[in-house]
Amino acid sequence: MIHKRTHKLSFEQADRLLDKYYEGATSVAEEDALRSFLQQKGLPRKYDAEKAIFEHWGQLQAQSSKPSRPLHSFFRLGRAAAAIAIVLMGFIGYRLFIPAAATDVAYVNGKKIQNKEEIIELASSSLDALFSIDGIAEEHLKEFSDIEF
């Protein structure tokens, strides 16, 4: 097995490795050595097929590894943004729903009322008014059914 070669293969070594390649017996490291050999300019034409094949694999490798990196950093950024958003939401929620001193307060026609009895009385009188509107609506519906098309 070849580990991180620092020098290019000789023609003889390359031919031997190519034989091994076509037997399906090369390791990834050996294929890397072959790739860098085939990237040389001015190679004899007998390597044309291997050159084209390895170039194709190289392009596919680049395509399959490229998206992973930006995607990875995108998710990292996303995670950071989500963490900030959660902290902010928590803070806003705390300020909105848990005021310093909880008291019963109602605003009726712009007037602030703190007396519970008064609030209940105002609410039930509003409901009575609503029921009386029902009567009006029923009358209108009757009129509507009388219309002939």
Binding site: Y22, E23, G24, A25, D48, A49, E50, A52, I53
Partner: peptide
Amino acid sequence: AIRVNLARARKTVRERYIKLS
């Protein structure tokens, strides 16, 4: 078993490449 199929595939790619080019 994997090596046999890999070898077949690689040899086919080479042979057909030479023929078509």
